[in-house]
Design a binder for these strands. Sequence first.
DNA 1: TTCCAGGGTAACG
DNA 2: CGTTACCATGGA
Length: 302
Amino acid sequence: MNKCQANKSFHISTPKEFSFRECLQFLARSRLEKLHFVENDRVRKLFKSAGKNFLLELTSPSATSIQVEFLNTVPAQSHKTTIYAYIREWFDLDTDLAPFYKLAENDSLLKNLVRQFYGFRLLKMPDLFETACWSIIGQQINLTFAYTLQKRLIEAYGQRYEFNQRAYWLFPFPNVIAELSPSDLRQLQFTGKKAEYIIGLARLIQEGKISKASLLALPNIEAVRSELLKIRGIGPWTANYILMRCLGFSSAFPIEDIGLHNAIKRQLNLTRKPTIAEIRQLSAGWQNWQAYAAFYLYRSLI
DNA sequence: TTCCAGGGTAACG
DNA sequence: CGTTACCATGGA
């Protein structure tokens, strides 16, 4: 973490197989996205640390670094440390992709993807509540509508911060959603079920019955998965999605995912979608890289 | 118009 | 127990 410009920014050195541009392409996939803002090869994000709002702007001035600039206020050192760790997690900078690229060389499904999207990273969603809500919202609806619902949820119950005539948003906090009744979310055109799931989840988190730390303290992925599956509204797909996107399990694999099926169909030029058994065969050699493989397949759908 | 979307639950046989 | 109806709306 190198300081510069009177501490208004710092740099993060990036690993070898990293492309800021490829990551931004994914972050920019929906114009309805409210939690970050991509424009001119830069991404802005509002980040709250210990009660303070920091508006971050990330650019990549060289192939080996990300620059993080503080637009509204310069954080104290303790906040900078938190922000530094947050961005490393967001862009998954601590994973060495070399083994994945090596196995992909001899994989019919991955070979072209890793060439096409070289340096693309599994973009994490570090907040558990945000990830779980997003995956519940996304159940059985198209992505465009999922983004619409997420946008409504954020604009209705999230925190807004304005800077230079532009609004930036924080995802709603569990304590706010925990106070709602399903009819509040029905008004945003959530299904009654999804409204119940999300409010129930908010209450579990609010009551301290589940947290990212408590899940990560469990001994292995199976223990975490079974803990997630106890939560109403979280089935196999959602559990795997959270394991992959938030909790950092590289072997998590949402094999039931329709988007994944479509990506494989397109990649292999099939006339029909692959069966679960066929996907098991195709992914047999992906041990400990299933999450990355899935994410590269998602990337191919943009 | 019909069918399918980055599924899950609850109510059936 | 395995199977099925239902959810709510947008896009193709």
